[in-house]
Nucleic acid binder design. Structure first.
Length: 324
DNA sequence: AAGGAGTCCAACCGCAACAAC
DNA sequence: TGTTGTTGCGGTTGGACTCCT
């Protein structure tokens, strides 16, 4: 036996809301509030609508301070970052964007942002200047031709839709550790995803992300549980996040440009503090941020479990993300 | 100008979580 | 503790609109 319907479908109006219905609903809620009972509300408000429909109309369209229209680049970046991080948890993503509704963001992602992101994936051998620029950005990492094996691994992550699979897989193996760890990386918009192919345990790591930090500070409803975040640098937006919901990947985001002078990728958080961090071949810190050492990261991804990573807290002050 | 294809987005649906009893 | 009602969420739909030929 199924659940009884929330309303008598035969006697409720469906489809688009008329201005009269909108003003009735608005007026009622402004006067009386929702009363904590959406099911009873339409009757009280004199509406021939299902309570769920009223709730949706109010939350997505009528309530005050709803922001409609164009999304800013900053909003784009936050959505992309969080999507790569937590997937399609639209309500959580919406919570990071005041005035935006989950429905809005979901529609925006499905109709525009995903395509925008896909168009950001450019083949490495293209002759366009943008492609050349991206090739340069990939310079610090040993590269080789992509192979279907790694393509399969990438497909297997489940992090992005197969359709958005870029044609720029890169493969490198560590030379400084006894455990040689093949991995490849990819660029999603302004983010870079590193995908160790030999991981036994699923985890995901974020470095230098205000969005991830914001997310980590709120454990309500987020799939990224506090313990999965790992350690993040207090008072700084440079952080590390593990997400066992995702697969075999950690993420550095967002990346703005490649710095030819010191062979590094400049990674900024874009948040209020505008903290600058860099992925670099040099391990050091500076007033402008952190330099993530590539070899250390290679070692980091060779660990076999989140517990191992979380187990070691030494040297947290300087390299708070190196726990293995 | 017509109509077919593609895009956008408000609204619906079903399910899971939660709350109240 | 189990049952029932409600809320919240994410996926999907379908109609309106725009673009293209």
């Amino acid at each position: 036996m199924g659940r009884a319907p929330c309303c008598d479908k035969a006697n409720v109006k469906r489809g688009p809301w008329s201005p009269e219905e909108d003003s009735k609903l608005k007026e009622y809620i402004n006067k009386h509030g929702t009363g904590g009972n959406w099911i009873a509300l339409p009757q009280k408000a004199g509406l021939k609508r299902c309570g769920k429909s009223c709730r949706l109309r109010w939350l997505n369209y009528l309530r005050p301070n709803i922001k409609h229209g164009e999304f800013s680049e900053e909003e784009d970046r936050i959505i992309c970052s969080l999507y790569v991080n937590i997937g399609s948890r639209w309500s959580i993503i919406a919570a990071q964007l005041p005035g935006r509704t989950d429905n809005d963001i979901k529609n925006y992602w499905n109709t525009k942002l995903k395509k925008k992101l896909i168009s950001g994936f450019l083949p490495p051998n293209s002759s366009s200047s943008i492609n050349n620029q991206r090739k340069q950005q990939q310079a610090p990492f040993p590269s080789s031709s992509s192979s279907s094996m790694y393509m399969d691994q990438y497909y297997g992550t489940g992090l992005v839709d197969p359709i958005s699979l870029p044609s720029t897989e890169y493969y490198a193996s560590t030379t400084t550790t006894t455990n040689s760890v093949p991995f490849y990386y990819n660029q999603v918009g302004e983010s870079i995803i590193f995908s160790p192919s030999s991981m036994q345990q699923n985890y995901q790591m974020f470095v230098g992300s205000e969005a991830a930090t914001s997310c980590s500070s709120s454990d309500n409803g987020s799939s990224i549980k506090q313990e999965e975040i790992g350690y993040h640098h207090q008072g700084s937006y440079n952080n590390i996040a593990f997400n066992s919901d995702h697969h075999h990947e950690f993420l550095v985001m967002p990346t703005s440009s490649f710095n030819n002078n010191n062979n590094s990728i400049v990674n900024y958080d874009g948040g209020d503090n505008n903290v600058i961090s860099q992925w670099s071949t040099e391990k050091s810190t500076s007033s402008s941020g952190y330099y993530y050492d590539l070899e250390d990261i290679k070692q980091l991804i060779s660990v076999s479990s989140v517990d191992e990573i979380k187990g070691e807290e030494e040297d947290k002050s300087m390299y708070n993300y190196y726990y293995y």
